[in-house]
Design a protein around this nucleic acid. Structure first.
Length: 268
DNA sequence: ATGGCTGATTATATCAGA
């Protein structure tokens, strides 16, 4: 059994109590974090080690972005890729052993893309599209052939109509526009990935992992989006045991605006 | 009514998130 969780934590230092609560209550083997918002030297490594997550792969920077993998089992082949050559900490990968295989875990924080969904006038949106294009180009290449892999993270795109509270209201809002959904589908196809959540949950069923801070009654309004994803290489698709989107965590004290998403894989 | 909030920063306003 291997339990892997992904969570955009929106400042890991501020929310370490929530991280420790989640680890205690849900017992993932591996936790992938995004938006850690601190340099590597400031990462709360000792707290995670004390909680039993002794193996850490971190890629941070000051103030923004930042990704990390915390694991109860050894991590090997740790790597970080600098997408778009901007020096941003938006990707880290590490390998774990599962069912006699070496499984690469790739943890991504895809750029949000700013407000205006036009790459001609909005450089942030151009960056987002470029980032996605670099992902699909990379995954078409030799590194990815015949490898067991899991891709997780905040991809900042809600691809399906049921991944947003209103397809009509959001089709011109960054995170749900046709052009970025198209780029995301290219990434999915390039890596021959399986969207694990939608493999388990019917595609017409509403499914969210993020609720804006700006909605005071986020629970009642329920205007969410599915921005956080878990994708599997084809050989792992039949190992899925369970999925868990911890919506409760959005209601914890001083929450992240994203909630943890977990996949449990069984050895066949 | 998709920005009404939230977090980080050599801060006391600005940028970023999405």
């Amino acid at each position: 059994m291997l339990r892997i969780a992904t969570w955009n934590i929106n400042s890991v230092r501020l929310r370490m109590p929530l991280v420790l609560r989640y680890l205690h209550e849900h017992q993932p083997d591996v936790l992938c974090l995004q938006e850690t918002k601190c340099r590597d030297a400031e990462f709360p490594a000792s707290d995670l080690r004390s909680a039993g997550y002794e193996h850490l792969a971190i890629h941070g920077q000051k103030g923004y972005h930042g990704v990390a993998i915390a694991s109860r089992h050894p991590l090997s082949s740790i790597s970080r890729r600098d997408f778009c050559a901007k020096g941003d900490a938006r990707h880290i990968a590490a390998t774990v052993e599962f069912a006699g295989r070496e499984v690469a875990i790739h943890n991504f924080y895809v750029p949000a893309g700013g407000d205006v969904p036009d790459p001609q006038v909005n450089p942030k949106f151009a960056h987002k599209l470029g980032f996605l294009e670099e992902m699909s180009n990379w995954m078409s290449g030799p590194d990815w052939q015949n490898s067991s892999a899991i891709l997780v993270g905040d991809l900042n795109i809600a691809p399906l109509e049921a991944d947003v509270w209103s397809h009509k209201a959001l089709m011109n809002v960054v995170s749900h526009t046709a052009v970025e959904i198209d780029r995301l589908q290219n990434v999915l196809a390039a890596g021959a990935w399986v969207d694990a959540l939608r493999q388990q949950i019917p595609p017409h069923e509403k499914l969210y992992t993020w609720w804006s801070y700006r909605s005071p009654n986020w629970l009642a309004a329920d205007k969410g989006r599915r921005l956080d994803h878990i994708w599997l290489s084809g050989d792992l698709a039949a190992n899925v045991d369970a999925l868990e989107i911890l919506k409760d965590a959005r209601g914890w004290e001083r929450p992240s605006d994203h909630v943890p998403v977990l996949i449990s894989l069984k050895s066949r």
